[in-house]
Design a protein around this nucleic acid. Structure first.
Lengths: 140, 140
DNA sequence: CTGGATGCAAAATTTTTGCAAAGAA
DNA sequence: TTCTTTGCAAAAATTTTGCATCCAG
């Protein structure tokens, strides 16, 4: 437990991010999140760990972490942005239109096709976003 | 010219959308747009055609048209949503990170791979979004 | 110490809404 | 006529910012 937090600290420092009590709380929220919380949800959850944390800090921290590639910002429902830690391998998202559940998946084949298409257009992909909005199949 | 507008009117009515002067102006803006304008840009452009049109009407019209599938809402830069007419064949977007230019493309192969992945997860895709954020290749 | 981070509250952005008047079918 | 749409302005919702203070390194 304490070990994990040490790891987080080390990883943040390695990315040139100054480590603070608030930032640890926020990263920890993302670590433990099974979902993709909004800034507001992150704030509430972080407050459980550190009452004094403010909304501004949540936004500023998320922006800072996104800049160094430690956090990914998504916008599934058009409402508020949703965040996740960028600590695992790259993946795309399938959003269940009925439940809002977000399922992660990865296809190396699709990735390479994307690169190929970009190349044909004379481009090199910096990053991409693939979201499938879907419903459970009747006989699923 | 007038013919095209007649067509638009007919298409809107066919989708069960009541046709008004303001809605025609908005759809016309989208028709003539070579880019993917924001709500605000649509408002300015529509005002050139119809001074009295209001912001609220732009948002309400875009929402109404999106609901019947006549308009697509995108969110490329995380700032404001960007809209386009859904009158052409389905396509995805490649966004030039340096210029902001948006290039449309389509890959039947990627589409079918997406469907296959969804199926494996027990889902059926309702719609999807694929965006490639890229830069022109050095030797491009 | 010193520059970056934080909290607070105010501001900025983008989008939505209530309501009375106007318009489409 | 009847139900929907519109304009206006106010309200919501989300994100950003100024500034004095605090804290990590």
């Amino acid at each position: 437990m304490t070990h994990e937090i040490d790891d987080i600290e080390a990883q943040l420092r390695a990315k040139g991010v100054q480590v603070t009590r608030q930032r640890l709380a926020i990263v920890n929220v993302l670590r433990l999140a099974g979902d993709h919380p909004t800034a507001d949800e992150i704030l509430s959850r972080a407050k459980l760990e550190d009452e004094s944390i403010s909304q501004a800090t949540v936004y500023r921290t998320l922006a800072a972490l996104e800049k160094v590639g430690a956090v990914l910002k998504n916008d599934f429902d058009g409402a508020g942005a949703r965040f996740e830690l960028a600590d695992r391998a790259h993946h795309d998202h399938l959003i269940d239109l009925d439940t809002g559940e977000v399922i992660e998946f990865h296809s190396e084949l699709i990735e390479s096709l994307q690169a190929q298409i970009a190349a044909e257009l004379g481009y090199e992909i910096e990053w991409h976003r693939l979201e499938l909005y879907a419903r459970k199949r009747p006989g699923g």
